[in-house]
Amino acid sequence: MSILQEIKNAVRSRSIHVAYVDVGSCNGCDIEVLACLAPRYDIEQYGIYVHNNPREADVLLVIGSVTPQWVDKLRDIWEKIPEPKAAVAIGNCPISGCVYARRGTLTTPPVENYIPIAAQVPGCPPRPTEILSAILSVAPLIYKDYEEKHR
C-alpha cells in the first residue's frame, strides 16, 4: 500500500460528511440525529460533519418509511452523491415500516427497494450513540483503500 493511500485513509477516517433525508417518518429519528450534533454526543469530535447537501456527502442517513412523493426524489438524491457513498437506514421505518406498516397505508417500506443500504440501525427511535457507532463503523468499510480497490 502506498504512503499516499495511507494518508488518504487517515484523513478520511476523520472527515466523514453526512446528509440526512426524512422520507416520511414521525420526526422521532430526526430528533435523535439532531441530538448527535448536541454537545452531549457531539458528532463533530469524531470527524463527522452534517451538511445536508448530497453533492458533498459521503454517508446518507435515510429516515422514515417511504411515501409515494419521495420514491423518485430519494433516487435523485442518491444519484447526486459522488462515489464512494453509503446509505444508512436510521430507525425501524426504513427497515420494516414499523407502526406505519398497516393495511391501507400509503407508505411503501422498506427503503432497500429504492436505494442500496449499507447498514441498518434498528430502534424506534435508536439511541444517538447507536447512530454514531453505525456511521463510524460503516465509513471505513467503504472509504478505506478506495483507490487501491478500484484501480
Partner: peptide, 8 residues
Amino acid sequence: IYPGHCIR
C-alpha cells in the same frame, strides 16, 4: 423479538 419492528 424482531429488532427492525420492535419499538422498545
